[in-house]
Amino acid sequence: MNPEDYETLPTDNVTTHMIAGAIAGIMEHCVMYPLDSVKTRMQSLAASGTEGISETLLRMVRHEGLLRPVRGMSAMVVGAGPSHALYFSSYEYLKNTLTRTFNSSKFDTLAFGASGCIATLIHDGFMNPAEVVKQRMQMTNSPYKSALRCAISIYRTEGFKAFYRSYTTQLTMNVPFQSIHFVVYELSQKALNKDKLYDPKAHMASGALAGGIAAAITTPLDVCKTLLNTQQTPVASGMVEAVKTVYRLKGVSGYFRGMQARVMYQMPATAICWSTYEFFKYALGTTPDLRLLPSASGTVISADSASTTTDTELMTDDSIRTEVSNEKYNLKARELPAMSGAGLYGTISFNTMHKADFQQQKDSFLDIGHT
């Protein structure tokens, strides 16, 4: 498969989008997970907020062990797989549907933003419980030894609603985050990848730019979400109370705690996510078979959905013939020998057939099959 074939891949293949999305989500969260742990520590109101990224990371390792920055990663693997599978598949479906509905490039930005918003609603419904467990595991002096024990403890002591305490804040943050993210990504692709080919460098650059801009703008809501998820002193029960608590204790600057770590986390994480997703979308895509059977009458048989024919089969059903032009084809069966070629991605065979009933009409058919 050549890169030029990238845009011919089926964009409505839900299975491809879900598999690519799941792998991309897991890669995104796992590769950058230590920096995510640092961000959570820096956003905590219980911390002084004066330490930098490297100092916070070194302190975690020095006082709590080498593996401390990756504690809780298993929760993200469980949550990120299905949530990102639904996230990307729903986004692709909605984006294609809306762009076809609007049928104008000037509405593309609206289509990208709306698709991102709806996809986020689905994503956060599956991801929020994993976020709660993850951040409980990341906080300072966390009493939990594993993600499973953490989830069981939260359920027993705080009830099921604890897993969705920050859901409103998460949506309030992620809807603008993902809208900005998708709009910037798609616009960057138009600038860096005008031919819409599979281009890893363009996908990574667009993803990093989109993630960095969206992360910086939505940092204040991320600080409130961290407060609601960790429930460290002081505690908060809702988004409004969290906003007030942050301002009362840390002032306006409190809303931007950990912004540097958040941007540094999101830029490579989003780049990894998009490049991984686009790679697997490209690798898992398939091109449908082609059947072209021209005759002297100026018609062709198009059978994209038909099964592969053998060398001796002849497709003569007039019901699947479509008119393409008035140009006549003067191919003679015995003048064009049967040929076949096998390559890395399949086999293409050219078979010429002649039917006894058509000897006087000299009708000829050319069958091109790709398997």
Rank of each mutant, 00 (worst) to 15 (best):
H29R: 10
T230R: 11
F182Y: 10
H354V: 02
V252P: 08
H29A: 08
V183C: 09
Q170N: 06
D357Y: 03
S146Q: 06
G159I: 06
G49V: 09
S319G: 09
D5Y: 05
K332R: 15
I53Y: 01
T270Q: 13
A269Q: 13
E323P: 12
K106W: 09
D289I: 08
L227T: 10
D357K: 08
M204A: 15
G258R: 05
D5E: 10
W274M: 13
E28N: 11
A75C: 05
L57K: 05
T11M: 05
T40E: 05
Q260T: 15
T8F: 12
V184D: 07
S179I: 03
E335I: 07
N128P: 00
F358D: 13
G285A: 13
S48R: 14
V223D: 01
K106Q: 14
F358T: 10
K190P: 03
S275Y: 02
F182G: 01
V70F: 14
N330M: 06
A47E: 15
H203A: 14
I320V: 15
Q266H: 14
C273A: 11
V175M: 09
A85V: 03
L228M: 09
E64M: 00
K201I: 11
D108Y: 14
D124H: 14
H181R: 12
A306W: 13
I23V: 14
Y329F: 06
A46Y: 04
A296W: 03
Y87Q: 09
V175C: 12
H29Y: 07
N103T: 00
Q260F: 07
L336Y: 10
W274A: 05
A215R: 07
N103K: 13
D222R: 14
S295I: 03
F177N: 11
T16Q: 05
S54P: 00
T8D: 12
E323I: 06
S153Q: 07
M139E: 14
T230F: 00
C30H: 04
K39F: 04
N128K: 02
E241F: 10
G125I: 10
T16R: 14
S253M: 11
E313Q: 15
S305C: 07
T172L: 10
A191Y: 13
K225C: 09
T109N: 02
K161I: 09
S253T: 15
M27T: 14
M27F: 14
S179E: 00
G52C: 10
Y345E: 08
L86T: 08
Y185M: 15
T56R: 05
F177G: 11
L94W: 00
E186A: 12
L67G: 06
M73K: 05
V70C: 04
S142W: 05
A24I: 01
E55G: 15
R68T: 06
L331M: 13
V183N: 04
L228C: 05
Y185W: 10
N96S: 07
S188Q: 10
K194W: 06
D12S: 10
P200E: 02
R59W: 09
R100H: 13
L336C: 08
T172R: 00
E186Q: 15
S83D: 03
L192R: 04
L290W: 11
A202E: 08
Y247F: 14
A119E: 02
